[in-house]
Design a protein around this nucleic acid. Sequence first.
DNA 1: TTCGGTGCTAACAAATTTGTAAGTAATGGG
DNA 2: CCCATTACTTACAAATTTGTTAGCACCGAA
Lengths: 124, 124
Amino acid sequence: MGKRKESSTNMVNEKCITEGCDLTYAVCKMGGRWKLLILCKLEHGKLRFGEIKKLIPNISERMLTLQLRELEKDGLVKRTVYAEVPPRVDYELSTMSKELIPIWLQLSNWGAKHRQNQEYQISA
Amino acid sequence: MGKRKESSTNMVNEKCITEGCDLTYAVCKMGGRWKLLILCKLEHGKLRFGEIKKLIPNISERMLTLQLRELEKDGLVKRTVYAEVPPRVDYELSTMSKELIPIWLQLSNWGAKHRQNQEYQISA
DNA sequence: TTCGGTGCTAACAAATTTGTAAGTAATGGG
DNA sequence: CCCATTACTTACAAATTTGTTAGCACCGAA
Protein backbone atom coordinates (compact mmCIF):
# COMPACT_ATOMS: atom_id res chain seq x y z
CA MET A 1 0.00 0.00 0.00
CA GLY A 2 2.97 2.11 0.60
CA LYS A 3 5.50 1.11 -2.05
CA ARG A 4 7.10 -2.24 -1.46
CA LYS A 5 10.71 -3.23 -1.76
CA GLU A 6 11.09 -4.79 -5.14
CA SER A 7 13.30 -7.63 -4.05
CA SER A 8 12.61 -8.40 -0.45
CA THR A 9 12.15 -12.08 0.21
CA ASN A 10 8.67 -11.15 1.20
CA MET A 11 7.85 -9.65 -2.17
CA VAL A 12 9.58 -12.41 -4.10
CA ASN A 13 7.64 -15.03 -2.18
CA GLU A 14 4.35 -13.31 -2.82
CA LYS A 15 5.09 -13.14 -6.50
CA CYS A 16 6.02 -16.75 -6.83
CA ILE A 17 3.06 -17.90 -4.81
CA THR A 18 0.49 -15.93 -6.72
CA GLU A 19 2.07 -16.80 -10.04
CA GLY A 20 1.94 -20.46 -9.23
CA CYS A 21 -1.55 -20.60 -7.77
CA ASP A 22 -4.63 -19.07 -9.35
CA LEU A 23 -6.53 -19.50 -6.14
CA THR A 24 -4.05 -17.56 -4.07
CA TYR A 25 -3.93 -14.96 -6.81
CA ALA A 26 -7.70 -14.56 -6.71
CA VAL A 27 -7.92 -14.33 -2.96
CA CYS A 28 -5.11 -11.79 -2.81
CA LYS A 29 -7.18 -9.42 -4.93
CA MET A 30 -9.83 -9.23 -2.28
CA GLY A 31 -7.54 -9.63 0.66
CA GLY A 32 -7.25 -6.15 2.18
CA ARG A 33 -8.74 -5.47 5.56
CA TRP A 34 -11.76 -3.53 4.28
CA LYS A 35 -12.03 -4.67 0.69
CA LEU A 36 -14.75 -7.26 0.88
CA LEU A 37 -16.84 -5.05 3.08
CA ILE A 38 -16.58 -2.27 0.53
CA LEU A 39 -17.39 -4.61 -2.33
CA CYS A 40 -20.47 -5.86 -0.48
CA LYS A 41 -21.73 -2.34 -0.06
CA LEU A 42 -21.35 -1.79 -3.78
CA GLU A 43 -23.27 -4.91 -4.64
CA HIS A 44 -26.51 -3.00 -4.91
CA GLY A 45 -25.25 -0.16 -7.03
CA LYS A 46 -23.04 2.87 -7.26
CA LEU A 47 -22.02 4.75 -4.17
CA ARG A 48 -20.16 7.96 -3.55
CA PHE A 49 -17.04 8.08 -1.43
CA GLY A 50 -18.91 9.69 1.43
CA GLU A 51 -21.73 7.20 1.25
CA ILE A 52 -19.39 4.27 1.60
CA LYS A 53 -17.79 5.98 4.54
CA LYS A 54 -21.14 6.34 6.25
CA LEU A 55 -21.91 2.68 5.66
CA ILE A 56 -18.60 1.65 7.24
CA PRO A 57 -18.34 3.88 10.27
CA ASN A 58 -15.01 2.58 11.55
CA ILE A 59 -13.00 3.09 8.42
CA SER A 60 -10.74 6.10 8.19
CA GLU A 61 -10.70 8.22 5.07
CA ARG A 62 -7.15 7.18 4.42
CA MET A 63 -7.94 3.49 4.53
CA LEU A 64 -11.02 3.92 2.42
CA THR A 65 -8.98 5.74 -0.19
CA LEU A 66 -6.21 3.16 -0.16
CA GLN A 67 -8.51 0.20 -0.46
CA LEU A 68 -10.54 1.81 -3.21
CA ARG A 69 -7.40 2.67 -5.13
CA GLU A 70 -6.18 -0.89 -5.03
CA LEU A 71 -9.55 -2.25 -6.00
CA GLU A 72 -9.55 0.15 -8.91
CA LYS A 73 -6.03 -0.76 -9.96
CA ASP A 74 -6.97 -4.43 -9.86
CA GLY A 75 -10.03 -3.79 -11.96
CA LEU A 76 -12.57 -4.70 -9.31
CA VAL A 77 -14.23 -1.33 -9.02
CA LYS A 78 -14.81 1.44 -11.50
CA ARG A 79 -14.25 4.99 -10.37
CA THR A 80 -16.04 7.91 -11.96
CA VAL A 81 -15.11 11.50 -11.26
CA TYR A 82 -17.53 14.29 -12.10
CA ALA A 83 -16.09 17.70 -12.85
CA GLU A 84 -18.00 19.50 -10.15
CA VAL A 85 -17.29 21.52 -7.09
CA PRO A 86 -17.40 20.28 -4.44
CA PRO A 87 -16.04 17.11 -6.03
CA ARG A 88 -18.23 14.14 -6.71
CA VAL A 89 -16.83 10.67 -7.25
CA ASP A 90 -18.63 7.42 -7.41
CA TYR A 91 -17.65 3.80 -7.31
CA GLU A 92 -19.25 0.70 -8.71
CA LEU A 93 -18.46 -2.95 -9.24
CA SER A 94 -16.79 -3.87 -12.51
CA THR A 95 -17.92 -6.70 -14.76
CA MET A 96 -15.05 -8.73 -13.44
CA SER A 97 -16.11 -8.40 -9.85
CA LYS A 98 -19.75 -8.98 -10.59
CA GLU A 99 -18.71 -12.45 -11.65
CA LEU A 100 -17.61 -13.00 -8.10
CA ILE A 101 -20.96 -12.29 -6.51
CA PRO A 102 -22.24 -15.88 -6.60
CA ILE A 103 -18.95 -17.08 -5.17
CA TRP A 104 -19.10 -14.53 -2.39
CA LEU A 105 -22.52 -15.82 -1.56
CA GLN A 106 -21.24 -19.36 -1.14
CA LEU A 107 -18.32 -18.20 0.96
CA SER A 108 -20.68 -16.17 3.07
CA ASN A 109 -22.86 -19.17 3.68
CA TRP A 110 -19.87 -21.25 4.61
CA GLY A 111 -18.76 -18.53 6.99
CA ALA A 112 -22.15 -18.21 8.63
CA LYS A 113 -22.50 -21.93 9.04
CA HIS A 114 -19.13 -22.58 10.58
CA ARG A 115 -19.06 -19.49 12.69
CA GLN A 116 -22.10 -20.90 14.45
CA ASN A 117 -20.47 -24.26 14.94
CA GLN A 118 -17.46 -22.64 16.42
CA GLU A 119 -19.54 -20.53 18.80
CA TYR A 120 -21.40 -23.65 19.78
CA GLN A 121 -18.17 -25.51 20.48
CA ILE A 122 -16.83 -22.64 22.55
CA SER A 123 -19.91 -22.14 24.67
CA ALA A 124 -20.47 -25.87 25.13
CA MET B 1 0.66 -15.14 14.75
CA GLY B 2 2.63 -13.65 17.47
CA LYS B 3 0.11 -12.62 20.10
CA ARG B 4 -1.85 -9.52 19.25
CA LYS B 5 -2.68 -6.59 21.43
CA GLU B 6 -6.16 -7.18 22.71
CA SER B 7 -7.41 -3.67 22.28
CA SER B 8 -5.47 -2.01 19.53
CA THR B 9 -7.69 -0.20 17.07
CA ASN B 10 -6.39 -2.68 14.57
CA MET B 11 -7.66 -5.65 16.52
CA VAL B 12 -10.96 -4.00 17.38
CA ASN B 13 -11.55 -3.17 13.74
CA GLU B 14 -10.81 -6.69 12.65
CA LYS B 15 -13.22 -8.05 15.19
CA CYS B 16 -16.06 -5.78 14.25
CA ILE B 17 -15.53 -6.34 10.55
CA THR B 18 -15.49 -10.10 10.76
CA GLU B 19 -18.38 -10.16 13.19
CA GLY B 20 -20.47 -8.07 10.87
CA CYS B 21 -19.61 -9.80 7.62
CA ASP B 22 -19.67 -13.55 7.05
CA LEU B 23 -17.80 -13.14 3.82
CA THR B 24 -14.92 -11.29 5.40
CA TYR B 25 -14.94 -13.82 8.20
CA ALA B 26 -14.65 -16.68 5.75
CA VAL B 27 -11.89 -15.11 3.72
CA CYS B 28 -9.91 -14.27 6.85
CA LYS B 29 -9.71 -17.96 7.68
CA MET B 30 -7.80 -18.67 4.54
CA GLY B 31 -6.00 -15.37 4.37
CA GLY B 32 -2.44 -16.14 5.46
CA ARG B 33 0.36 -15.89 2.97
CA TRP B 34 0.82 -19.64 2.50
CA LYS B 35 -2.48 -21.04 3.65
CA LEU B 36 -4.28 -21.63 0.40
CA LEU B 37 -1.22 -23.14 -1.13
CA ILE B 38 -0.97 -25.56 1.75
CA LEU B 39 -4.65 -26.40 1.57
CA CYS B 40 -4.34 -27.11 -2.15
CA LYS B 41 -1.53 -29.54 -1.53
CA LEU B 42 -3.70 -31.36 0.97
CA GLU B 43 -6.59 -31.62 -1.43
CA HIS B 44 -5.46 -35.01 -2.61
CA GLY B 45 -4.86 -36.55 0.77
CA LYS B 46 -2.78 -36.57 3.92
CA LEU B 47 0.73 -35.24 3.91
CA ARG B 48 3.51 -35.16 6.44
CA PHE B 49 5.15 -31.95 7.54
CA GLY B 50 8.25 -32.69 5.51
CA GLU B 51 6.26 -33.58 2.43
CA ILE B 52 4.44 -30.29 2.45
CA LYS B 53 7.74 -28.54 2.83
CA LYS B 54 9.11 -30.28 -0.22
CA LEU B 55 6.05 -29.32 -2.22
CA ILE B 56 6.46 -25.67 -1.29
CA PRO B 57 10.16 -25.08 -1.61
CA ASN B 58 10.20 -21.41 -0.63
CA ILE B 59 8.45 -21.75 2.67
CA SER B 60 10.51 -21.72 5.84
CA GLU B 61 9.87 -24.25 8.55
CA ARG B 62 8.75 -21.52 10.86
CA MET B 63 6.16 -20.21 8.44
CA LEU B 64 4.93 -23.67 7.64
CA THR B 65 4.48 -24.38 11.32
CA LEU B 66 2.70 -21.10 11.97
CA GLN B 67 0.31 -21.45 9.08
CA LEU B 68 -0.47 -25.05 9.91
CA ARG B 69 -1.10 -24.13 13.54
CA GLU B 70 -3.60 -21.47 12.59
CA LEU B 71 -5.31 -23.71 10.11
CA GLU B 72 -5.60 -26.31 12.82
CA LYS B 73 -6.91 -23.84 15.37
CA ASP B 74 -9.52 -22.67 12.88
CA GLY B 75 -10.56 -26.23 12.18
CA LEU B 76 -9.43 -26.31 8.58
CA VAL B 77 -6.83 -29.02 8.91
CA LYS B 78 -6.56 -31.99 11.17
CA ARG B 79 -3.20 -32.78 12.70
CA THR B 80 -2.23 -36.28 13.74
CA VAL B 81 0.86 -37.06 15.75
CA TYR B 82 2.24 -40.59 15.85
CA ALA B 83 4.21 -41.61 18.90
CA GLU B 84 7.32 -42.60 17.02
CA VAL B 85 10.92 -41.65 16.84
CA PRO B 86 11.86 -39.81 14.76
CA PRO B 87 8.54 -37.99 15.04
CA ARG B 88 5.84 -38.40 12.44
CA VAL B 89 3.00 -35.93 12.03
CA ASP B 90 0.49 -35.67 9.29
CA TYR B 91 -2.01 -33.15 8.15
CA GLU B 92 -5.26 -33.47 6.26
CA LEU B 93 -8.26 -31.37 5.30
CA SER B 94 -11.15 -31.32 7.76
CA THR B 95 -14.78 -31.87 6.78
CA MET B 96 -15.26 -28.16 7.08
CA SER B 97 -12.55 -27.30 4.61
CA LYS B 98 -13.57 -30.02 2.18
CA GLU B 99 -16.79 -28.08 1.76
CA LEU B 100 -14.69 -25.27 0.38
CA ILE B 101 -13.15 -27.26 -2.44
CA PRO B 102 -15.82 -26.46 -5.04
CA ILE B 103 -15.63 -22.80 -4.09
CA TRP B 104 -11.86 -22.81 -4.42
CA LEU B 105 -12.29 -24.22 -7.88
CA GLN B 106 -14.52 -21.37 -8.93
CA LEU B 107 -12.17 -18.81 -7.46
CA SER B 108 -9.29 -20.47 -9.22
CA ASN B 109 -11.07 -20.27 -12.52
CA TRP B 110 -11.88 -16.65 -11.96
CA GLY B 111 -8.25 -16.01 -11.12
CA ALA B 112 -6.95 -17.79 -14.17
CA LYS B 113 -9.35 -16.02 -16.47
CA HIS B 114 -8.67 -12.53 -15.25
CA ARG B 115 -5.00 -12.96 -14.81
CA GLN B 116 -4.80 -13.58 -18.54
CA ASN B 117 -6.86 -10.51 -19.30
CA GLN B 118 -4.63 -8.42 -17.17
CA GLU B 119 -1.47 -9.74 -18.79
CA TYR B 120 -3.00 -9.01 -22.13
CA GLN B 121 -3.78 -5.46 -21.12
CA ILE B 122 -0.27 -4.92 -19.84
CA SER B 123 1.54 -6.31 -22.86
CA ALA B 124 -0.81 -4.61 -25.33
C1' DT C 1 29.44 -41.98 22.15
C1' DT C 2 28.28 -39.66 18.32
C1' DC C 3 25.17 -39.11 14.42
C1' DG C 4 21.07 -38.82 11.60
C1' DG C 5 16.28 -37.96 10.78
C1' DT C 6 11.94 -35.38 11.92
C1' DG C 7 9.17 -31.79 13.40
C1' DC C 8 9.33 -28.48 15.63
C1' DT C 9 10.54 -23.66 18.98
C1' DA C 10 12.97 -19.30 20.34
C1' DA C 11 15.03 -14.92 19.66
C1' DC C 12 15.54 -11.55 16.75
C1' DA C 13 15.16 -8.51 12.52
C1' DA C 14 12.95 -6.73 8.41
C1' DA C 15 8.97 -5.65 5.78
C1' DT C 16 4.40 -4.45 5.31
C1' DT C 17 -0.10 -3.01 6.71
C1' DT C 18 -2.97 -0.25 9.39
C1' DG C 19 -4.24 3.89 12.08
C1' DT C 20 -3.96 9.16 13.55
C1' DA C 21 -3.98 13.78 12.87
C1' DA C 22 -3.70 17.46 10.14
C1' DG C 23 -3.79 19.49 5.95
C1' DT C 24 -5.34 20.71 0.54
C1' DA C 25 -8.04 22.39 -3.75
C1' DA C 26 -11.77 24.36 -5.92
C1' DT C 27 -15.88 27.19 -6.12
C1' DG C 28 -20.35 29.04 -5.20
C1' DG C 29 -22.97 31.48 -1.52
C1' DG C 30 -23.27 35.08 1.95
C1' DC D 1 -13.25 38.09 1.68
C1' DC D 2 -14.66 33.99 4.44
C1' DC D 3 -16.90 29.72 4.82
C1' DA D 4 -18.73 25.16 3.93
C1' DT D 5 -18.52 20.98 1.27
C1' DT D 6 -16.24 16.82 -0.73
C1' DA D 7 -12.81 13.73 -1.75
C1' DC D 8 -8.90 13.27 -1.07
C1' DT D 9 -3.14 13.60 0.47
C1' DT D 10 0.86 13.83 3.62
C1' DA D 11 3.75 12.78 7.40
C1' DC D 12 4.13 10.05 10.99
C1' DA D 13 3.49 6.23 14.42
C1' DA D 14 1.87 1.76 15.94
C1' DA D 15 0.74 -2.93 15.08
C1' DT D 16 1.16 -7.03 12.71
C1' DT D 17 3.11 -10.30 9.56
C1' DT D 18 6.92 -12.44 7.52
C1' DG D 19 11.73 -14.05 7.24
C1' DT D 20 16.55 -15.66 9.28
C1' DT D 21 19.28 -18.27 12.07
C1' DA D 22 20.19 -21.29 15.51
C1' DG D 23 18.92 -24.83 18.45
C1' DC D 24 16.14 -28.80 20.90
C1' DA D 25 14.23 -33.67 21.92
C1' DC D 26 14.04 -38.27 20.91
C1' DC D 27 15.86 -42.98 20.02
C1' DG D 28 18.12 -46.39 17.42
C1' DA D 29 22.08 -47.49 14.53
C1' DA D 30 27.02 -47.33 13.73
